[in-house]
Simulated assay, not measured.
Amino acid sequence: MNDDESALIRNQLKKKVVIVPMSGRTLLHFSGPVDVFTNADKCLYLSGSKHGYDVVIASPTLKKHIPTLAGAELVCQQSALEITTPIDIVIVAGNDFQTLGKSEYATFCNWLSTINEKSNSRIGSVCGGAFVLAEAGLLNGKKATTHWQLSDRLKKEYPLVEVNTNPFYMGDGRIYTSGGVSSGIDLALALVEEDHGKDIAIQVARKLVFYLSRPGFQAQFGNLLPAYESTNIAQKLYGWLNENLAQPLDVTRMAEHLNMSPRNFTRVFHKQTGLPPAKFIEKLRVEMARKYLEDTDVSIESIAEKCGLNNLVSMRRTFLRHLMTTPSDYRRAFRTSLQSPGINDSSQSNLYRTN
């Protein structure tokens, strides 16, 4: 068998991956997954495997030019609507929400539905791409995630979707969704591992200098408490509470500060914030502790005391409950760049981890 025949056989064995950028606002939405699959294809080739990936970047409409915020224009060689050969993986990357309702995007949603119904394709999304899958009916009755800032909107607009914003990515059957921008890389690596095992996925992660399995969850990124109107009772208390977090803060003390009865205070507070006072205070303490962990070198024990989280054990338990990570892991992941650990710090040991 000559080289041309070998190449032909390998091309026939490759899985076809179609990446569809819904907009070019954030290039990593689609470029991240593209880099994962193309590097996986190279790793498989070098390992002697006849399998791999044939990666195509396709526009969602017959218009093949997609503008970007970077000033460049993404020119796709083909439209997803024109692809007639079998597709193994489709990933809808991003969504600018400006043109989803137009008829041309409705055509793409119909195309997605057809792909889902007539093949065994795995279909995924990155960030706001989940809205496209939902519009196509692919997420009805399924668990899905999206960027943490978009979760409430997804729940409201598509009530049949079981939204869980915490994971970086998740799968339900043949449908996969991922969260923020870089979560598309997490999803793509998971699909490569699903196809070819952990060793190939690790090789790709190493090439991209990325975690094979990132520690933490999207819950770490979003604020635990929303922004309240100035007339909201929580906003009226906010400054005073921050100054007194190290002290015991029960309903009686908060009510006295506002010259209210404890019973009326509890009723009004829950109505305006949607939270019992004790739960609100706990979240506020975690938010303050996060800022200390991100911006200072204050010891975790001192932070626990300053924020009214009692001690290290109690603070760790509270962080796990609200952020699904420990205070020390949170500090390693999110401290500001000027305070970042050095390159030889032990936190780097989690990179490319294999367990």
Rank of each mutant, 00 (worst) to 15 (best):
K143T: 12
K142P: 00
R153M: 03
R267W: 01
E282P: 01
S23G: 11
F280V: 04
T107S: 14
K156R: 05
A246M: 03
P248E: 02
T165P: 03
K143P: 04
P60G: 05
L225S: 08
A70K: 01
V20M: 09
T177N: 02
N344Q: 02
E135S: 14
S49F: 06
P60D: 06
I9E: 11
S182C: 08
A40D: 08
K236Q: 15
H196A: 13
G184H: 13
T145P: 05
E117Y: 03
I303P: 03
N244Y: 02
P33A: 15
W240Y: 15
L13M: 08
N344E: 11
P67S: 12
G71T: 03
K14Y: 02
C307M: 04
R263P: 01
L112W: 15
V126R: 14
L249D: 05
A201G: 08
P167K: 07
G101F: 05
D345Q: 09
E117T: 12
R25H: 07
V163P: 07
N11L: 00
T38K: 15
H147C: 04
G180C: 06
E73S: 14
F319D: 06
E243V: 00
L81K: 09
F280G: 03
L62Y: 13
K16R: 15
T231G: 02
V75M: 06
P262Q: 04
K50E: 11
T325K: 00
A278C: 00
E301N: 10
Q247L: 13
I200R: 05
F221E: 13
E229F: 08
G52I: 03
T325R: 02
A234S: 10
E117S: 10
K306Q: 09
L27C: 06
N232L: 06
V286N: 05
Q78F: 01
S103R: 05
A106K: 15
K118A: 08
I57M: 10
D195K: 01
T26M: 09
H65G: 09
R153Q: 10
K291P: 00
D297M: 10
I281Y: 01
N311M: 05
K155A: 00
T145R: 11
G141S: 02
T296M: 04
A58D: 12
A190V: 07
K143E: 09
S113G: 15
C76P: 05
Y292A: 04
N11D: 10
S151K: 11
I185G: 12
L27I: 07
A58W: 15
Q77Y: 04
E82T: 14
I281E: 00
Y53W: 06
K198H: 06
L224R: 15
A234T: 05
I175Y: 03
Q339S: 09
L225Q: 13
A72Y: 07
R332T: 12
L69V: 02
L133I: 12
D152A: 09
L284Y: 08
G216K: 10
W148G: 08
K15P: 02
G129I: 10
N140A: 14
